[in-house]
Design a protein around this nucleic acid. Structure first.
Length: 416
DNA sequence: TCTGGGGTCCTAGGACCC
DNA sequence: TCTGGGGTCCTAGGACCC
């Protein structure tokens, strides 16, 4: 039996832990740049605020209804997520952390998984303050479906068997895990509207519509496991660092600064995972929502002659790629850097004819990066990253980093 | 004026090879 | 009028997820 434990309205719940006055009030959390609503409390959903709704479109609605609005505080959410996982881990020998707010647990050792799930749910709430819902089923896809029903009915814990027609019929096809907007439209055209009809559709038809991936989803709904538990996270293959700008950027110099920053950030990510990048891609784009403005987007990729984690070298190449795709006269909205085909740094292989890395340079780079890792990127950075950062993102309503920053620690009693 | 960021997997089609 | 067949590798793009 597989359990899916999913935190309810996770980012909102994190904010509520430290501000109990937000309970029972409509609350939303915005994406980067205060762009869209990415988390909504049940009260905010009831008002009709959609997932992903652009903030500038719903601002009035929020004001009229007294919705409390927050910028995202990923440091807080990441830390709360780790706490939830550490509590969940006590209840199952195998746990797969699927995302910041969801984990799969293998409960096949338990003879009363539903009771166990209820205890687990109560414990997570008591120890972390975060409410979760648990779905139980023989496969992951069914567990997702059970979880959805647990949330919908408000029961908190729900078990679904593959032959439970009532349960399957009550879930619309676009709510099935693995069926998005495009596939559900195509399925609707052949008369498939809910999970039950999908499970009973001819597999040849399903395969024509959505290939082997959709066929796997169908088998999972029938109770045939096709997706294994992945306890040990597979090493990442690529990594990306990108941001929309707080305001449009016209100048190459500003773009260079932004790209240098994203590159350093991406390199720090791969260094922390002891990986090396084999390739590099840089992309830039204008604001696709502005139909009144000229649009341009482009990207370019290069392959390093040997995998690297050297920020100086990668930044230099990223700027070169940027200059080759930059066209003046456009208002750029977003830029980004991808590091491709990451390999483990233990498998580093020297070039046959090139002297392998200048030791002093390697030591220098490592020293700077160590300072940055320990004291934060503001205390050690590379020249190309700039200081003013006019382009950086907006995040005007962020709450304190209660659990990860000494300055932001909650004080009780008021006087210090 | 303002519309997120970071991933994975699969497939079709082109380039190239013998 | 006729213009091979079968394979691999790579990339771009599409679909999905949270």
């Amino acid at each position: 039996m597989i359990a899916l434990a999913d935190c309810n309205n996770f980012y909102v719940s994190c904010e509520r832990v430290f501000r109990p006055s937000l309970e029972k009030k409509p609350v939303i959390v915005l994406s980067n740049n205060d762009g869209c609503a990415v988390a909504r409390s049940n009260e905010a959903k009831a008002i009709g605020i959609r997932m992903g709704a652009p903030y500038h479109q719903i601002k009035k609605t929020c004001e009229w209804n007294g919705v409390r609005v927050f910028s995202s505080n990923y440091e807080l959410y990441g830390d709360m997520s780790r706490r939830v996982v550490s509590v969940l881990s006590r209840f199952a020998p195998e746990i797969e952390v699927y995302s910041i707010d969801e984990s799969f647990l293998d409960l096949s050792g338990s003879d009363q998984p539903l009771n166990l799930s209820k205890r687990m749910r109560a414990t997570v709430l008591r120890w972390t303050g975060i409410p979760i819902s648990v779905g139980l089923a023989p496969t992951k896809t069914l567990a997702k479906l059970a979880n959805r029903l647990a949330k919908k009915t408000g029961s908190g814990c729900m078990q679904v068997d593959p032959d439970d027609q009532t349960a399957l019929k009550s879930v619309a096809i676009d709510e099935v895990w693995g069926v998005g907007r495009r596939l559900s439209a195509r399925l609707h055209r052949v008369g498939v509207r809910n999970a039950f009809e999908f499970a009973r559709a001819p597999s040849s038809l399903v395969r024509t519509i959505g290939g082997v991936t959709l066929e796997r989803t169908q088998r999972e709904l029938a109770g045939i496991p096709c997706l294994e538990m992945e306890e040990i996270p597979q090493p990442r293959k690529n990594t990306c660092s990108s941001r929309s700008f707080g305001k449009p950027v016209m100048e190459l110099e500003e773009l260079e600064e932004a790209v240098a920053n994203y590159t350093v950030k991406a390199i720090r990510k791969v260094r922390s995972e002891h990986s090396l990048a084999s390739g590099l891609q840089v992309f830039i784009m204008t604001n696709r929502f502005r139909e009144d403005q000229a649009q341009y987007s482009n990207s370019r990729t290069l392959v390093f002659d040997e995998p690297t984690d050297d920020p100086i070298r990668v930044v230099k190449n990223a700027k070169r790629l940027l200059r080759s795709i930059f066209r003046s006269g456009y208002a750029y909205k977003k830029a980004g850097v991808l590091l491709l085909d990451l390999v483990s740094s233990s498998s580093r292989q020297g070039l046959l004819f090139e002297e392998h890395g200048d030791t002093r340079r390697v030591e220098f780079v490592d020293a700077v990066e160590e300072v940055a890792a320990r004291y934060g990127g503001n205390h050690a950075f590379w020249g190309g990253q700039g200081i003013n950062k006019n382009w950086s993102m907006r995040r005007e309503m962020r709450t304190p980093r209660y659990t990860t920053s000494w300055e932001d620690l909650v004080s009780v009693g008021g006087k210090t």
